[in-house]
């Protein structure tokens, strides 16, 4: 198969980017999209040119590294898969394929198609965890969790932090990501003690990182490689309201670090 690739090239965060056209010839339909780019890069390297930078690692749709907007859709034309699970037989012979990076203020471009998704990590660091020390955990069966609840938590927890929801959203909002993370822990009894603080902290962190706000357009759900439902966004909205109304927090200021006084 033959294609024309229109690839976004940009040397670094502050620099101007532009599209460069590359022909892709004799592409096997059995190749994955990223293998097709591998081959292009091999050719560029042998010509002494710098290859197109893009991210990938596991190449089986779970690590969340790969992040290409292909013909205007994050992760490309197939539903429920990451870029690395996309195969060339999916494309029509002879067409032009436009490849762009995730575009969002919160995801500055590092090079070409590689963006810095550290904002998602920082959102998680703001409270996307259960503060539980290693050791001394009670037996796993002490707190029973019904199957349905466990499965719902698992639905939310299947997020691979690829950032496609941000890339797809008209407002570059990370709402589906935040909602999935908050819902996962809010659904489990172990996450209950920090439920309110977590919801508020993650919300603030999302704003701080420069993501937009949710427009309830559900484009995120449609491109999510794990098909995470916008149901979790509504659940997170409830979670946030509940946190604000029912658990406004103690009246006295508490130190954010309980270990501070021992230092």
């Amino acid at each position: 198969m033959n294609f024309t690739l229109k690839v976004w090239r940009q040397r670094g965060a502050g620099e101007r980017g532009r599209f460069v056209i590359y022909p892709a010839r004799d592409v096997s339909p059995a190749m994955s999209f990223l293998e097709m780019l591998d081959v292009l890069n091999q050719q560029l390297v042998l010509k002494g040119q710098e290859p197109v930078a893009f991210e990938s690692d596991c190449r089986e749709g779970i690590c969340g590294s790969c992040s290409l907007v292909i013909n205007g859709i994050p992760h490309g034309p197939d539903r429920g898969v990451a870029t690395c699970q996309l195969y060339m037989r999916r494309f029509t012979e002879g067409t032009t394929i436009t490849i762009e990076p995730w575009r969002a203020k919160a995801f500055p471009i590092i090079r070409d198609l590689v963006v810095d998704r550290g904002a998602l990590d920082r959102v998680m660091q703001a409270g996307g965890y259960i503060s539980s020390n290693t050791g001394g955990a009670v037996d796993g069966n002490t707190i029973l969790i019904g199957k349905d609840r466990a499965e719902s938590a698992m639905d939310a927890a299947s997020c691979i932090s690829c950032g496609a929801c941000v890339a797809a959203c008209k407002n570059a909002s990370a709402m589906l990501f935040v909602a999935a993370k908050v819902s996962h822990l809010a659904l489990l009894p172990q996450g209950e003690p920090e439920r309110a603080t977590r919801a508020k902290a993650l919300m603030k962190a999302m704003d701080r990182e420069g993501f937009g706000s949710c427009g309830n357009q559900y484009e995120c759900e449609a491109v999510c490689p794990k098909s995470i439902s916008v149901h979790f966004i509504a659940a997170f909205n409830r979670e946030f309201l509940r946190a604000t109304v029912a658990e406004p927090g103690p009246l006295t200021e508490i130190p954010s670090d309980p270990h501070a006084e021992f230092r």
Binding site: A104, K105, G215, E219, A222
Partner: peptide, 28 residues
Amino acid sequence: LAIHNRRARPVPYAVREYRKASMASRTM
């Protein structure tokens, strides 16, 4: 909110295809 949202994507996509976002939702 709209100003914040506009700033959240300073560089627009060259090609954009929507799967689910309705016309009404995108033109609010």
